[in-house]
């Protein structure tokens, strides 16, 4: 295996000389095909990381590497070919006047021949299950549908990593589950890395690894399972753990011993069953 896909070396960032540091000496690596979640309260610096990765912002100190390239003026467009980003507001990233035109935008920018474009648009719309909406205008789509178009637009450029920068935070539960389902289907079918930036802890369960940010510092790197044992610490930095993890912790407190920390209802019930049959 070659080197990591994304690497942050002692990265610090602030918006201006007289502004506070948004990121302080951050280090981490993300491997090819890995699925990472970055969490933290609003203002913890998690979205800044996304913008640094593809050079929308550049750090005052430290180095960032993407796919073996240093992220700087010279490499910026090559880097952006490897990184696809889906932003928070579904309305403000929809460039085309129709679904088809919007997906074409990224392809046009990269000078992809028209025949190839048509093929890729069709394929990507099928992947996100939006083939019936090719000619739709954005104001006739729901938030979830717009975000799926955004994902298709990003997929069309065949990136090595897709960053979802709070892509579900403005959606209703239906839209949210549409996106979560779309992404998990992609994870299974494509060899690609995913970075999910979120404050919804239900979305991190499927991540290989979680990076927790707090006040500009990398506070913790852990698997979701390890993370859910740290309820008190998470609450302290403005986050919450899901219901299952909370219940598991309370159960341990009243003397029900569980072998591993459960991530979902089935696991918890299974654990309880084992505990029950041992008695």
């Amino acid at each position: 295996m070659s080197g990591p896909l994304i690497e942050f070396q002692n990265v610090s960032f602030r918006y201006g000389e007289d502004q506070p540091w948004v990121l302080k000496n951050v280090n981490f690596t993300i491997g090819e095909g890995e699925s990472i979640a970055i969490i933290g309260h609003n203002g913890s610096g998690k979205s800044t990381i996304a913008k640094l990765i593809n050079g929308l912002l550049s750090p005052q100190a430290g180095k960032i590497f993407v796919d073996g390239m240093r992220v700087n003026e010279k490499n910026i467009w090559a880097v952006r070919k490897s990184v696809g980003m889906v932003f928070q507001n579904p309305d403000n990233q929809f460039v085309g006047t129709t679904v088809r035109d919007d997906i074409a935008f990224g392809l046009e920018n990269r000078g992809i021949p028209r025949e190839e474009m048509i093929r890729r648009i069709e394929e990507c719309l099928t992947v996100v299950n939006m083939s019936d909406y090719v000619q739709h205008e954005p104001h006739r789509l729901s938030g979830g549908q717009k975000q799926r178009v955004a994902i298709a637009g990003v997929l069309a450029i065949l990136p090595k990593v897709i960053i979802l920068d709070e892509a579900t935070s403005m959606l209703d539960p239906k839209g949210r589950s549409e996106i979560v389902d779309t992404v998990s289907a992609l994870k299974n079918n494509r060899h690609m890395s995913f970075i999910t930036i979120t404050h919804d802890l239900n979305e991190i369960i499927h991540a290989d690894r979680v990076i927790v940010m707090n006040d500009g510092e990398l506070w913790l790197e852990a698997t979701p399972r390890q993370l859910f044992t740290k309820k008190d610490e998470l609450v302290q930095i403005g986050l919450n753990i899901p219901f299952v993890a909370r219940l598991a912790e309370e159960l341990t407190r009243v003397g029900v011993e569980l072998e591993k920390h459960p991530l979902n209802h089935e696991e918890l019930l299974e654990e309880l069953w084992t505990y029950h049959s041992k008695m």
Binding site: R80, M85, F87, Q93, A104, F105, N109, I157
Partner: peptide
């Protein structure tokens, strides 16, 4: 936001663009 999204999607002016 839009400017940022466009940049992230590789928009760098009319040069070298193809058209759907």
């Amino acid at each position: 936001d839009l400017a940022m999204a466009m940049e992230a999607r590789g928009y760098q002016g009319g040069e070298g663009r193809t058209k759907l």
